[in-house]
């Protein structure tokens, strides 16, 4: 992996005593895989991860070696739900510095400190959904000098609260965009009622009632659907008003990690709520980003 060694520089003070630099510079360069230098392109309006990031043009291929805009959009889409969590003020800046890097003569990477702040603030949220901090965002590989991207008001920012009190899957805003993003990030979604909620080690075990309606089947099989039990990962002690109210019907989203089914989102099935109604109608025609479209 590339590293940035400190450069020893000597200024000429006395001309009769010229000195030799012993330092070495390993500069970041373009990824080796490409014959052509990256092109400067407008950030498209449907790259929602990076709307409002503070600049309007990006390099393609980006710093994650995504070669086409379709690939960028498809891979960036799964990160949009994390932005809604507001786990760190630098989340969008970190992600977009890699997904949609600023157009410069040479690539500008995020600073290691920015990466570490976002990682420390957001990895507990990601863990709650069953996602480890990914290899592409390993902080050790990012630079520590001045030639990198930090939060603009980095020196004056106070330490943010990285751990919101509500359980992450229960903390989703009742808003169409948010629900659809989480729907796409989840593997399945069902309409049902809660039968029982029990603590189990660090998790909370949610048993569902027999009567269920599938909204999104995904990888779920019919026989698994019958006796479905969901886990609220690391959710033994955080508050979740939805789980406290077993009389309501819920829209429940989840995904499978190893042999467990994790709860990734829970919304009250509220037909009187206009936003929820609009979302359910939109859901019928909404298409999630598909992997087949990556290389159009």
């Amino acid at each position: 992996m590339k590293s940035l060694a400190s450069l020893s520089l000597w200024r000429i003070i006395i001309l009769i005593l010229p000195l030799v630099s012993l330092g070495q510079t390993f500069e970041y360069g373009w990824p080796d895989n490409y014959d052509k230098p990256p092109q400067c392109v407008d950030i498209p309006v449907d790259l929602r991860l990076c709307q409002g990031v503070g600049y309007h043009q990006m390099l393609l291929p980006n710093l994650l070696e995504h070669e086409s805009m379709a690939e960028v959009k498809q891979q960036a889409g799964s990160w949009v739900p994390l932005l809604h969590k507001n786990c760190d003020p630098g989340t969008q800046l970190l992600l977009c510095s890699l997904f949609a890097p600023v157009c410069m003569e040479r690539p500008i990477y995020p600073c290691r400190r920015l990466c570490e702040n976002v990682r420390d603030g957001c990895s507990p949220i990601m863990a709650a959904f069953g996602f480890p901090w990914p290899h592409i965002l390993t902080c050790d590989k990012f630079p520590q000098d001045d030639m990198c991207i930090n939060t603009p008001n980095d020196t004056s920012t106070s330490e943010p609260n990285g751990h919101p009190p509500v359980c992450p899957p229960c903390d989703n805003e009742m808003k169409m965009d948010v629900i659809l993003d989480h729907m796409c990030a989840s593997e399945f979604a069902i309409k049902t009622k809660i039968q029982e909620v029990k603590r189990e080690n660090m998790d909370r075990k949610v048993t569902l009632q027999k009567k269920k309606r599938t909204i999104k089947m995904g990888t779920l099989k019919k026989k698994d659907l019958k006796k479905l039990t969901l886990y609220l990962k690391n959710g033994a002690d955080c508050p979740c008003t939805q789980l406290d109210n077993t009389r309501n019907t819920y829209l429940i989203m989840g995904r499978k990690v190893d042999k467990q089914y994790l709860l990734t989102g829970i919304h009250k099935w509220d037909k009187s709520n206009r936003e929820f109604k609009k979302t359910m109608k939109k859901l019928k025609s909404h298409k999630c980003p598909a992997y087949e479209n990556v290389f159009k």
Partner: peptide, 29 residues
């Protein structure tokens, strides 16, 4: 033989989006 080269040093990225550098003299053998 020795050669005096001028190169960019102490570069800093400014949000958003430009880079400023200083000029450093350097003698290489």
């Amino acid at each position: 033989y020795t050669e005096r080269v001028v190169e960019r040093c102490h570069c800093k990225y400014h949000w958003c989006c430009y880079v400023t550098c200083k000029k450093c003299d350097k003698t290489v053998e």
